[in-house]
Write a protein that binds this DNA or RNA. Sequence first.
DNA 1: GCAACTTTGTGCGTGCCTTCACAAGCGGCT
DNA 2: AGCCGCTTGTGAAGGCACGCACAAAGTTGC
Lengths: 256, 256
Amino acid sequence: MTLPQAGSDPVTVRAPRSIPEASVARLAVYLRMLGELAEQGADTVSSEELAAATGVNSAKLRKDLSYIGSYGIRGVGYSVSALIHQLERALGLNHRQAVALIGVGNLGHALAGYGGFGGRGFPVTALFDVDPDLVGIHINGILVDHVRDIPTTCRERGITIGMIATPGPAAQGICDALVEAGVRCILNFAPVVLQVPEEVEVRKVDLAVELQILAFHVARKRLVVEGAEVDGESLAVPDAQANGHPVNGTSNGGIR
Amino acid sequence: MTLPQAGSDPVTVRAPRSIPEASVARLAVYLRMLGELAEQGADTVSSEELAAATGVNSAKLRKDLSYIGSYGIRGVGYSVSALIHQLERALGLNHRQAVALIGVGNLGHALAGYGGFGGRGFPVTALFDVDPDLVGIHINGILVDHVRDIPTTCRERGITIGMIATPGPAAQGICDALVEAGVRCILNFAPVVLQVPEEVEVRKVDLAVELQILAFHVARKRLVVEGAEVDGESLAVPDAQANGHPVNGTSNGGIR
DNA sequence: GCAACTTTGTGCGTGCCTTCACAAGCGGCT
DNA sequence: AGCCGCTTGTGAAGGCACGCACAAAGTTGC
Ligand SMILES: NC(=O)c1ccc[n+]([C@@H]2O[C@H](COP(=O)([O-])OP(=O)(O)OC[C@H]3O[C@@H](n4cnc5c(N)ncnc54)[C@H](O)[C@@H]3O)[C@@H](O)[C@H]2O)c1
Ligand SMILES: NC(=O)c1ccc[n+]([C@@H]2O[C@H](COP(=O)([O-])OP(=O)(O)OC[C@H]3O[C@@H](n4cnc5c(N)ncnc54)[C@H](O)[C@@H]3O)[C@@H](O)[C@H]2O)c1
């Protein structure tokens, strides 16, 4: 499908050769593990080894890697350093991406102080809040600005990613400000569904939902152990050990 | 497959009627939105309205709800209160699930102080750390215990869910202790792949991966805007606006 | 230089998830 | 009482993702 064959359309568009979203997520995991292997002095790694270390099927891993090109050596494996380079290129990590964090409360403090973002190419370079006690202080060497400065400051510093850690009711307003500031990728920790224009990408981290999914599995296991329904109805799930959070869906019903 | 039809097996097993994992995640989102609607005094809600509010396709929403039974009224919609009750039952929220948090550092402090968990039926009732400066203090009224007490304390308090917020290298050891304590569901914030027996369910929250997925979309959009490849290769994705994090995969290579 | 071994890259079948589209069912209106 | 409009619940179809299994391709040893 969508092969660059003649016939269907007058102008033959270049094959999009898109990377499945699911694979992108795994590629990021491979990349981190490769970094650890490189530190340990590993020179090459086989798909089987890397798959075991990251907990995926080796065939799936090879297919994931095949989306970004053929950089393996048959009979040997993959060159760790070369693969790191290719993954960084494919994931768009050759340019640093500056991140803005809005809402420097409990969670925001932890995020702002976390070194794991900057260390992986995502320096948090702007902090925003409305609380007068917070605006003006420094966290991890970064000044907290007032949210009214979001449009100007984000453009000035070339911010491409926004992280929202405000209370739920404030999130949509902040989101709108970020979009106005030209930010087109948002990571949202507030438990609300953000409405955005379709060119903006939103990912939601929803810890309460994570716990509820786990709770569901607890309940399911209780049924299996007890061998009978607790509440008059049965609940079950096919596999477990999976980890897919959809909650998405070509959001029509949004701004569109 | 596995239909309760006569023929295949001597003893006909009751239809498992499993709920797809993807649907479970969305059901939790519907439940939260229904809670908000109930607060606003809504009596009934149609699939179209609820779908718009949660950003999903209305047909998908109806199918999700159909997995837990037929509680809608044709021509009217769903009774908000009745649907909340059914969702709570289906998700296993009729019993409170006590949560243990291990690692009370930056992130752990934020999690321990967060009221959103207890408010939604997941009270954090145990905290653990190794740092002598932390062991013994109270956070949000909960005493921080030493990690060596994990097995006894977790069993005493009937803990069913563990949240790991320690540095990566410590995570596997903590995980093993939790499993030994009978905890069978774990939410892991450390950037490592945990090896667990197959009866244990692990979900990973990996913020650096979230950012990398966003960065990938930034890069992809840059290409679209500039209309040419930046680095000699093209990268693209079909849809965007999706939100699936797999990174899983019937983890063979684990303990099994 | 050849044979045996190792590992990649991928074609293909299978199953899950999503989406469309519509019949069935329910309430309200006349 | 009967009709009409609205909404649910689901059959069917398509697409995506996963994983097996194997040919191709490279390496090592002799
Ligand atoms: N703390 C957690 O562990 C945790 C867990 C899951 C989800 N969350 C979610 O993350 C968000 C933040 O949680 P928190 O515990 O840090 O809350 P918090 O109340 O401690 O912090 C919120 C911060 O946002 C600021 N703020 C409020 N309105 C604002 C606005 N309009 N613009 C900018 N800043 C504003 C406040 O001044 C405060 O500093 C909430 O939506 C919460 O539901 C938090
Ligand atoms: N802070 C963030 O925003 C953030 C974001 C993403 C991921 N993470 C991950 O979450 C984890 C915690 O991050 P953090 O910023 O809170 O780190 P931190 O160093 O502030 O806190 C870690 C805590 O774990 C404790 N600890 C260390 N070894 C332990 C052990 N063996 N048993 C029990 N406790 C132990 C330490 O005493 C400390 O209190 C890390 O794995 C980090 O990669 C954090």
